[in-house]
Design a protein around this nucleic acid. Structure first.
Lengths: 127, 127
DNA sequence: AACCAAAACGCAAATCTTTGCAATTGCAAC
DNA sequence: GTTGCAATTGCAAAGATTTGCGTTTTGGTT
């Protein structure tokens, strides 16, 4: 892989934001520095970064995928299907399962950002 | 929810197939019995069935989501990012994690079909 | 410095999925 | 049976993402 300026700027942007950004949001952000960049170039750069493991992509059920830098501690998310609330859970809650799956199946898990859908505590009470 | 004929036919179709079908494949199949049905109707019916828990949807990284009946024993998949091979793992390997997450976070997990990406044993040897 | 192959890019088109809206249908109460 | 309302549908358009292809850029080699 070559050092693409788009890749670098996306990493810098996502590192500064520390948030889930959609492709469109990433596109807008990096256009401040690369005004002529094309959206498909952003998609391809994001794909490279996800494959290389520096960025995570997740479908949180909002209609478009969201991207996030993976530099700081890994984490995962619980998305409430009723109220849309997003809970964050730490990686150690999940890593154990991944280890077992790796042992049992001789499969090296690369997925680094899990999204689980369900119902949060508050919405469970409501019903 | 009302008894939609499309919902019923999709369930019957997926039950017969016992496979991962794309929305386009579902569309073609049910057109044999409902020739005038619209693709967006199929999408909406699939969404209902997924929400109600009778069908699972997963992005296996093939460009389009795949749908599967959930009637028979639940299972999950490991997708090799090198060769594309799909391994099936049983629900008990995963249910334990879900239980812990439910306890720790008072969150009722509804996700019923997990897709984990990684590298299979064979491809690990190759590299 | 010139050259080459591979990687990245822009653009347009294709593909996949969702959505707004008006029309239709099914179910239940009357 | 008909009336009313909400769920479902078709259609067209919008939105999200991927892809083919010709061009440009990059990094390494001569």
């Amino acid at each position: 892989m070559r050092a693409s300026s788009v890749d670098q700027i996306i990493i810098e942007t996502l590192s500064k934001e520390h948030a889930h950004l959609t492709s469109a949001q990433v596109y807008e952000k990096i256009r401040e520095r690369l005004p002529a960049v094309n959206l498909s170039t952003v998609y391809r750069a994001l794909e490279r970064l996800v494959t290389s493991g520096s960025v995570s992509v997740s479908d949180m059920g909002t209609g478009s995928a969201v991207y996030e830098i993976l530099a700081d501690g890994r984490h995962h998310h619980l998305v409430c299907q009723k109220c849309g609330q997003v809970l964050t859970i730490e990686d150690n809650e999940v890593r154990e399962l991944f280890s077992k799956i790796q042992e049992n199946n001789h499969f090296h898990v690369l997925t680094n950002h899990l999204i689980l859908f369900g119902i949060c505590a508050a919405c469970q009470k409501d019903s």
